[in-house]
């Protein structure tokens, strides 16, 4: 038990800010899946004809792979990259499925009124996708874990100029 606790504690201690941002991004991805499924997947929704199941499948794969990679110290730096790449593909599947919906809404021109009748589910999905992609890119360039000794020790003396060698 204490061993487990120790491992968990060390794991948490060694996580850097990038890890937490990646985790938030994963949560956003899960929320996005729920929103998309609820608004596009439902049988009686007008958006359901534009539903692209590939978008959901890719998101699921992205979340599972990302979580798995986050838990492994060799792969955790690349977890956000995998998340980004797959979520981006998911977004493209979403877009290719739904662009005809936009042609319907903006049939006679891009106007304020036309924006007004956009479905909430569509708008929320787009916002979430954009957030996921932005967060995953930022997380990609952030450190996912601290060095063991840096996490344990009080000082940054082991580094030169405050940076890891």
């Amino acid at each position: 038990m204490s061993e487990k606790k120790g491992y968990f504690g060390r794991f948490v201690r060694t996580r850097a800010a990038g890890f937490y941002l990646t985790a938030v991004t994963v949560i956003l991805a899960i929320v996005q899946m729920i929103v998309y499924q609820a608004t596009y997947g439902a049988g009686n929704s007008k958006l359901s004809v534009y539903y692209a199941p590939e978008a959901i499948i890719l998101s699921v794969v992205a979340v599972v792979l990302c979580i798995a990679m986050m838990l492994c110290k060799w792969t955790d730096p690349w977890a956000p990259l995998v998340l980004f790449a797959l979520e981006f593909w998911s977004f493209l599947m979403f877009a290719s499925g739904t662009y005809l919906y936009l042609t319907e809404v903006f049939y006679a021109g891009v106007t304020a009124e036309a924006f007004g009748i956009l479905e909430g589910g569509f708008t929320l999905s787009v916002i979430l996708y954009v957030a996921i992609l932005l967060c995953s890119i930022v997380a990609l360039f952030m450190r996912q874990s601290k060095k063991e000794d840096a996490a344990a020790g009080p000082s940054r003396k082991n580094t030169v100029g405050g940076k890891n060698k």
Binding site: Y107, G109, E113, A114, I117
Partner: peptide, 8 residues
Amino acid sequence: NPGGSSVG
């Protein structure tokens, strides 16, 4: 919105 779009 008298013109420009049939929608609305």
